[in-house]
Design a protein around this nucleic acid. Structure first.
Length: 424
RNA sequence: GGAGGAGUGGCAGAGCGGUUGAAUGCACCGGUCUUGAAAACCGGCAUACUCGAGAGGGUAUCGGGGGUUCGAAUCCCUCCUCCUCCGCCA
């Protein structure tokens, strides 16, 4: 959420940003500015009335003390008039505040100047292309969903029986591969200086709001009605919210956190060949990295995160490319996002496996995540996060790219985790 | 799940209807003293919104929300959290 004051002072910049995003509902910008003015005005009136009441109440107290009950009762009459006025003012104020909140929540983050304009994923900029060899598959190669069945390592049908479509069951070497990847990713994150967390897999409404899942993506989350809790769509939500309502010292930067969690996404309305197998599922595993950074350093940090993710993919030996998302494809809360895609050879497709973003102050504003500078002034911190990495599509690419007539070869870095070097 | 008890500033801990944004202690910051340090003494020390060039002013906040009252940290309702006991349980 942007600050109303920021919108007022940077109206042109905000409008330009919305244009880059191809965001049509620019009327919210003026609404915010007007409503914020109205809010101040009515707040002023309401505060003044309250001040009158507070003063009169003190006087009444004094009068009772000095035994002038009749005068006190006279004052009471006047106060009750003010109270009626106050109530009306507050009702008006509530209406305005609600409208303002709605308008503010409707506006996405202002894109970073480097974000290219564009509407769809076709307009994304290839930031780093893959210029090395592509995997060469043998003649009878198969897509990962067939391999998974052939080697009996992932059972989608069993998932349907137990839960429903999109809930894969990993079995035998498939399960062990899954666990190996999680351990590998976490170990790499630890080596890179991230503090590891195991957060809850359900969060309350405040947390979902803090990182911007609510109200924007309400339908995307599984919701436990009996307890008013949301299943997390990513570790970003609980991990970033660790720092909700926190005021840091400048010297606390950078804060680097990592966590493995399952992720739950309803993905309503998805269907077709592109969501086959592991390409899109309702529950998947992911290791996330989260940074909280000083505003001056957040873009250097974003580069550092890209390097970290690149390192993982290189060690796994998967062809990858990095995209700079265009305005239209950029997430609501993000200022700049780089997507990582790996090449899944049997499908002949690039699959998104990581999304690394700088949210600047968009999340921290709602989180009330601030820091004190050397002059003791408070400012909003910057938050960033990235997948490092999301498992299913990595598994898909591993299965497809490393399939041989003698089975699937496990990358060397994973072998000490899996305890086997091939799936056959 | 059942029965009790409790939630006050960074921490500890008073207050239990009327100048209480909140005593006191500790911590922290500045100063005096000191060769330096400690001790002692003096002063400062919450957050948000808002008015003001500034000095300074207004409003809100004593777990969250709602209510009673001219007036609530103090009374009532409700939710949350923690503690003790019982039950259940990986």
């Amino acid at each position: 959420m942007l600050l109303a004051s920021f919108i007022k002072e940077n109206k042109e910049k905000v409008l330009e940003g919305l244009k880059i995003r191809n965001f049509k509902e620019t009327h919210f910008v003026d609404e915010v500015i007007v409503l914020d003015e109205q809010r101040k005005e009515i707040q002023q009136q309401s505060d003044n009335t309250q001040a009158l009441i507070n003063n009169a109440s003190k006087e009444i107290g004094q009068l009772f003390k000095s035994g002038q009950a009749d005068k006190a009762n006279e004052k009471k009459g006047q106060v009750s008039e003010w109270k009626t006025q106050l109530k009306e003012l507050q009702e008006q104020a509530d209406v305005i505040k609600n409208k303002l909140e709605t308008a503010l929540l409707s506006l996405p983050n202002v894109p970073h100047p480097s974000v290219p304009p564009g509407n769809t994923d076709e307009d994304n900029e290839v930031y780093k292309a893959w210029d090395k060899a592509m995997p060469q598959l043998h003649e009878n190669h198969q897509p990962h969903w067939e391999l998974a069945e052939k080697y009996d390592i992932i059972d989608m049908k069993l998932g349907v029986k137990l839960t429903g479509a999109g809930f894969p069951v990993y079995k035998g070497k498939g399960a062990r591969l899954q666990r190996a990847l999680i351990s590998f990713f976490l170990d790499e994150a630890n080596k890179a200086g991230y503090t590891e967390y195991i957060p809850p897999h359900m969060v309350n409404e405040d947390s979902a709001r803090g990182t911007g899942q609510l109200p924007d993506k309400e339908g995307q989350m599984y919701y436990v009605t009996a307890d008013d809790l949301y299943l997390i769509p990513t570790a970003e939500v609980p991990v970033t919210n660790i720092y909700r309502d926190v005021i840091l010292d400048e010297k606390d930067f950078p804060i680097k956190m990592t966590g493995y969690t399952p992720c739950f996404r309803r993905e309503a309305g998805s269907y077709g060949a592109h969501v086959r197998g592991l390409n899109r599922v309702h529950q998947f595993d992911k290791v996330e990295i989260v940074h909280i950074e000083h505003p001056d350093k957040s873009y250097d940090t974003l580069q550092e995160m890209l390097k970290h993710v690149e390192g993982l993919l290189e060690q796994l030996g998967l062809p990858y490319r990095i995209l700079r998302l265009c305005g239209g494809d950029l997430g609501f809360t993000s200022a700049l996002t780089f997507d990582f895609e790996v090449y899944s050879a049997a499908q002949g497709r690039w699959l998104e496996v990581s999304s690394v973003s700088n949210f600047e102050t968009f999340q921290s504003n709602r989180l009330k995540l601030r820091y004190r500078d050397t002059e003791n002034k408070k400012h909003l911190a910057h938050t960033l996060n990235g997948s490092a990495l999301a498992l299913p599509r990595i598994v898909a690419a591993l299965l497809e790219n490393f399939q041989t007539t003698e089975g699937i070869i496990i990358p060397e870095v994973l072998q000490k985790y899996t305890g086997f070097d091939r799936i056959d």
